[in-house]
Simulated scan of single mutants.
Amino acid sequence: MGYFEIKKRRDGQILLNLKSSNSMTILTTEGYNSAEDYAESMEAIKKNAINDACYVIKETADRKFYFDLKAANGSVIGKSGIYMTKAAAGRGVDAVKRNAPDAHLKE
Rank of each mutant, 00 (worst) to 15 (best):
K64H: 02
A35P: 04
A39N: 06
S75K: 11
G81N: 06
G81C: 07
S21F: 04
T85R: 13
G74M: 04
Y83L: 10
A39H: 07
K70M: 08
G90T: 14
N73T: 05
R98W: 02
K86C: 13
G90N: 14
V96A: 04
F65G: 11
I77K: 08
I57K: 07
Y55F: 15
S34R: 09
T28C: 01
R63P: 00
Y66M: 13
R91G: 06
K97D: 10
E107W: 03
E30R: 12
A72K: 03
M24P: 00
M1A: 09
N17A: 00
N73I: 04
E59Y: 02
I45E: 13
T28F: 01
K64F: 00
N33P: 12
L69V: 08
A87P: 07
P101T: 00
G78F: 06
D37C: 09
E43C: 06
D11G: 05
H104D: 08
A39K: 10
N17S: 01
I77M: 08
I14D: 03
I77D: 03
N48K: 10
D68G: 09
N51M: 13
L18G: 03
F65W: 15
D102Y: 07
T60K: 01
K46Q: 13
K86D: 14
G31W: 14
C54H: 15
T29H: 04
M42Q: 11
E43N: 13
A72M: 02
T28V: 04
D11V: 02
R10W: 09
C54L: 08
G2P: 10
Y83C: 09
Y38C: 07
R9C: 04
V93W: 05
L15D: 08
L27T: 00
A61G: 02
A44D: 15
V56E: 15
A88Y: 15
I50F: 05
D102C: 00
I14F: 02
A39T: 15
M42H: 08
S20V: 01
N33T: 14
R91H: 13
H104T: 09
S75H: 14
S23I: 07
K58S: 12
S75G: 06
A35N: 05
K46E: 12
M84S: 13
I82L: 13
K8D: 01
